[in-house]
């Protein structure tokens, strides 16, 4: 136990990052900025992977580490779409995932928003539509916020969420 405590003390407190200024989130495309009024300042996010290469997932997981600490700005990943305000979708939409995506979207209570994360979700990326790929997320459910990148670095994702909340 003493080793564990010593390691915690040694790691110390990491400086927390402030909410970024709105003008810094240049690359992020959002629909009308009514999110904070409608959803409040704490967001519950449900993630759905519709065919990603798992790069975007790695960065979502990284958002939970002590450096980005997404929870500190009020964003929480939740286990059920029924608890969510936001659906965070990664990957192009593989055909076998189109129906599960719609079902998950329908399970999120209104008011809700959809965030498309990564080049694939925003615009199909390296995966153009074919027999096994429907296309981008917007071809299946309406997208409100698009965060490009392959994968988008955690700073960018964090800024996008912070912008949604800080408006």
């Amino acid at each position: 136990m003493h080793k564990l405590l010593r390691q915690i003390v040694k790691t110390g407190m990491l400086r927390s990052r402030p909410c970024p200024r709105r003008d810094r989130a240049r690359d992020i495309h959002t629909s009308p900025p009514s999110l904070a009024e409608e959803l409040g300042r704490a967001l519950a996010v449900r993630h759905v992977d519709t065919g990603s290469c798992n790069g975007c997932e790695l960065e979502i997981q990284a958002l939970g580490n002590a450096i980005y600490n997404l929870a500190a700005i009020g964003v929480r990943l939740v286990a059920s779409p029924r608890h969510a305000d936001i659906l965070l979708v990664t990957g192009p939409v593989a055909r076998a995932m189109a129906a599960p995506l719609r079902a998950t979207y329908d399970a999120v209570p209104a008011p809700k928003r959809v965030v498309a994360l990564g080049d694939c979700a925003c615009g199909c990326g390296v995966y153009s539509p074919n027999y096994a790929t429907v296309g981008k997320v917007d071809d299946v459910i309406p997208v409100d916020v698009a965060i490009p990148g392959c994968p988008p670095p955690p700073e960018t994702i964090r800024e996008a969420f912070a912008t949604l909340i800080c408006r």
Partner: peptide, 11 residues
């Protein structure tokens, strides 16, 4: 499995 099949070999 097979939900994320994207037809990569065809591409």
């Amino acid at each position: 499995l097979g939900y994320t099949h994207k037809g990569i070999a065809k591409r």
